[in-house]
Every structure is written in C-alpha cells, then in structure tokens.
Amino acid sequence: MSQQFGSNPYYQNNNTGGGYLTGSPYGGSPSSPGQKTRSAAAQSLRPVKAKQLAAATQAHADAEWKIEDVEVGQVTIVGHLVTIQPQTTNSVYWLDDGTGRVEARHWKGGDEDNDKWGDVSEGTFVRVTGTLKTFNGKRYINATHIRPVKEPMETYFHDLECVYVTHFFRHGPLGQGNEGASSTGTNMSNYTTQASTAHREEWAHLNPVQRAILEFMASVPDDNDEGVHVGAIARAVQGTAGVNDVSISTALDALMDDGRIYTTTDESHFRLS
C-alpha cells in the first residue's frame, strides 16, 4: 500500500506530516487554524526544581517555556506541600522543594475529581505534574496530576533525576564519546557507520553482542520482507568480543523480547522493527 501511495505525487508530502505542500510559498506556516505546529518537546515530561521554573524563560506570552535554552513541555516536581487552599473553582497547592516555592493550581472538575485529589495532606511530600503558566505576572503549575510521595526515597530520586536531565541537555547522553569511539573502531565501512549513527544512542545500554547484531542489521539493505538469516548475522558479529552460538541466540531472544527485531518467514530470519 505505502509503495503505491509513494508513487503518487499528491501523497508524498504526507511523510512530512503537516498536510501542506512543502514546496508551496505557505509551506512554512501551518495551513489550518488551531493546528499549532508542536515540537516533540511540547509532548515531553521533564523533572524540574522550583528554581528552574523561576528561571525559565518565554519569548512571548504564547511561546514555549525554555530552561537553559531547552524547550520544556510538561513538568513534574516533587515538593513539600506547605498549604492547600481550596477555592470555589480551583485549589491552590503551595510547594516548597528546597530551591524555592511554587504554586500549583488545580481546576476543579466533578465530585469524583475531589475524591481523586483528596489524598494529599499538608506537611508531606507530593509529586505534581502539569504545565507552567503565568497569570498576572505570577508563575504557577497548571496541575493535571498530584499524588502523595509514598516512597521517601522518591524525593531524593527526583533531585538526582533533575541533575541527570539537566546534565543531559548540557552535555548530551552519558558515555557518548566512548560509545562513538568503540563503534567506529570495529571494521565497518563508511556506509554502515553512517547507517547506524542515528540508532547508536538508543542502543548504548545494550550489550556488545546485541549492539553488533542491530548495527549489522541496520547496515544491510532492507529490501526483502524475509529479512536477514541468522547465519548471516552470526558471520557478521563473529569479531565481537564474547560471541558464541549461545550468546547470539540469547541476544536475539532479548532483542525480540524488547521488540527491536522480529522473526519473518521462519524462526531463523529476522528484521528490524
């Protein structure tokens, strides 16, 4: 089906997702009203500290928020719930997470909503998830979710997670330099190296055999539905440390469990998901 559509000039632009022709003079702006172009970051959830929310910047009232020049979508924060002020249309939760105070507002829905939101109490740690907003120059979190922190270590986990995520945005993924060096060290052609570059980060946590299998599978042309034979995989990853029949079969099983590859016509042909 997709190949058939691919040959039709009217459908080609659908791959870019906007529904408007990239070649048209209006290509740069969204064609239909209300359909705001959203970046992937707008759909993301970032752990933050109150201080980062206080320091977040916004180019104009409708623009996305940025922390250290990185766009943020939804935010999640763990803080000491200082006060709850129930009001007619919304409840205000004052959170203190040690770096500052931030107000979380929850707009009331129905009665069931109040039951769901009633299990937090003052003087405990809670986790709030929502989006950052301003009203009259005051920043608050428009909360979509609030829950008590039942596992005390979650409070400290959140601090470390904020450090990790901020560090990630400042310096890139963990161990990126080392991974890159070791991958180019294997005897692959320029083409295979390029082909696997895009995947290398998400494969970084896999063991060397699994990674070698994925890199090989990404490097061969994916032009038949049958996929790659296990024999070809075994030959290709021979040079990797710790490879034997058992480790290849374990690695293939693990990759299938992860949903990264799947079997095709029989148990010995594999394709990348």
């Binding site: 500290k49 201080k51 270590m153 470390l160 450090v163 901020t166 560090h167």
Partner: peptide, 19 residues
C-alpha cells in the same frame, strides 16, 4: 544515597543553576 544526593546538590556545577 541521601548523602550522595546532598553532595550532588551542593556540587558547584548544579548549586545555583538547579538548586
């Protein structure tokens, strides 16, 4: 682990910008 977290919080790379 709490102590590790506290030392990380007080690390000059993060104290002031995150904490």
């Amino acid at each position: 682990l709490v102590d590790f977290t506290i030392e990380t919080i007080n690390d000059p790379r993060f104290l002031g910008s995150i904490f």
